[in-house]
Amino acid sequence: MPRIWVFGNDVNTDQMVPGRYAPYMLGANDDVRRYAFIEARPDFAPNVQSGDLIIAGPNFGCGSSREYAPLALKRCGVGAIIAPLFARIFFRNALNLGIPCFTADIREQVADGDVVEFDLAAGLITNNGNQIQLPPPEGWMREVWAEGGIVPFYRRHGRFPATGA
């Protein structure tokens, strides 16, 4: 069952993966996964499990365009990220990688370490019997998630999302 990881406001991509741990800086066989939140939250990468959820405050992912920041979260198996506002480059990178992002503020309804049930298709979190309904994403976002990211989406459809046939 997914565990909740709670983060604060204005979490920037330097906190997710400092520039010093970019793939450009690492050995050829190293994995950026190991460096997710390495300084901001050192217990994250060693303990996060596939399907876990990140709950954060506004402006999640602000800062640089480094796609290896959401890539590290994807390789950690993060199942979805829920925040009241996402920085735009991060939001787009996460969409492109097929990481579901829900724009909602549920920090009052969960606590760090909570173990919950999560139904992605229904956008429903169940925390100790309490149901948290996430706002439905735009249909085109769900289409990209369903394909597993923008590359498979583009290869299948030959077009960008949300832009008609």
Partner: peptide, 10 residues
Amino acid sequence: SGMGTTDIAL
């Protein structure tokens, strides 16, 4: 406008 790896590759 700034973009990540995948958007630039596209």
